[in-house]
Design a protein around this nucleic acid. Structure first.
Lengths: 242, 242
DNA sequence: CTTGCTTGTCACCGGCCAGTGACTTATATG
DNA sequence: CATATAAGTCACTGGCCGGTGACAAGCAAG
């Protein structure tokens, strides 16, 4: 499991000898030859990772388990243990790939003149990318529920991606207007977008907005752009906080 | 049940001495008198509800189950079925109480002059109330992960509370400035606050903000107030969208 | 008193899950 | 060729969970 993996460290097993042997089947009848999958380690690993991603995106993280992943992949669960060291390692591998996916989502072109325009464009692009990526959504939702080590690892990768993104934006757009806490404002806007996307995938609404209606998303996008533009507009010298 | 694991119960059941029938005890030896809990239906129901709330707030919704609740309450799980009709009914009852809690959170005084001031004060108050209420946080996180019927019921209650809140605010503060999509802006801000609070209880950070540091929350609060004030400031006639 | 309802308690079932040992067979290596 | 390794498969253990049936004891009405 995740955090509470060490549940029963000290049970002693009074193991009885296994009765049946494989060859016994010949006595009862002819075996229909199960036709094992052709050997392909890399392909099998890919199948397992793909299955985990599919379950995560479709059914959420709660449905992830060694049995379910193996079943989805059409593979014996033993292979999950052998190749990844259990669910823990599999999730770590999945996190690596997820990091790549995040990179894709953050690859929107950074363009525009001035901080306000650049940030606004980036926020809107981020919203669209996140809305399209169900896997990242599942990971994000997971982080809000679990407190495990795997989550922390995955979250660290994501944070690093966001940090890089911020640095890139700042390098392109320059500094935000003086006296504006851009980090906090961006955090609020980003968090708002994340939350609305996550609400859409389950509840379908939030605070009077029907999140199943594309029109609502247009309004949300406009609101974010509106806020971002207003906050980072050039003549913001009148606003000052400590 | 999610991946969160509970590993405790083995050492509680060490008393194995049960015979097939209750009366058999007299044959084998004197019974130490299991001393059943004195009869108190209302008290027992309250204990169960309280236990469910405690688990939800402490361990999250993933840890909720008939067994765990009964164990936490120190009560046989059969009573959960008898009194509430299973987990479903228990959660419904809990939702009723939760609705009251939500009411508490929304009972901040609506005061101020003008839409901007009223909304800003309400948002800040809502943030503080939500930060203090771990049970509502758990419910909110749950809604982002599950897609069940109980969730929908609970969410409906919450939405109704928010709707009432909006109506009250509008009645007090009047309409927002023309040309401003207040519903969408408020949704973004509200969603941002919710998301940051939910991140704080698990990940502890978001987009470069350390959510374990009270100073970060001061900045977030300032950012929300800043945005709200700027968006709803009276001379907003220059801004127009469709 | 007897009868019936309720409260509290326990035992048990089937099902799913995590994890392990062991077997078969294909492939590479000598 | 023989043999060691690795891939794929199966069987099995132990455990928790949801859910149900049954039992003992309190309590009240007749």
């Amino acid at each position: 499991m995740t955090a509470a993996a060490r549940c029963a460290p000290a049970w002693q097993l009074s193991r009885k000898a296994h009765g049946k042997l494989r060859g016994e089947a010949a006595l009862t009848g002819e075996r229909p030859k199960p036709a094992p999958r052709p050997r392909d380690r890399d392909g099998t690993e890919a199948r397992i990772i793909q299955a985990a991603a599919a379950i995560m995106a479709r059914d959420g993280v709660g449905a992830l388990g060694v049995n379910t992943v193996a079943r989805e992949a059409g593979v014996d669960k033993q292979l999950v243990y052998r190749y990844f060291g259990g669910l823990e390692g599999l999730l770590e591998r999945l996190g690596t790939d997820l990091r790549l996916w995040l990179g894709d989502a953050a690859d929107a072109e950074i363009a525009g003149s001035g901080y306000a325009e650049v940030i606004t464009g980036q926020l809107v692009a981020h919203l669209a990318a996140l809305r399209a990526n169900h896997l990242v959504q599942a990971a994000l939702a997971w982080e809000l529920v679990e407190r495990s080590e795997a989550v922390a690892r995955l979250g660290a990768a994501k944070n690093e991606a966001i940090r890089d993104w911020f640095a890139q934006v700042r390098a392109t757009a320059g500094a935000p207007p003086r006296g504006v806490d851009a980090t906090a404002i961006n955090a609020v806007l980003l968090a708002g977008m994340h939350h609305l996307v996550l609400r859409a995938r389950t509840a379908g609404d939030f605070a009077g907005m029907d999140l199943t209606d594309p029109a609502s998303w247009a309004r949300i996008e406009a609101a974010v752009a509106h806020i971002s533009t207003a906050m980072y507009a050039a003549p913001a010298a009148t606003i000052d906080d400590a």
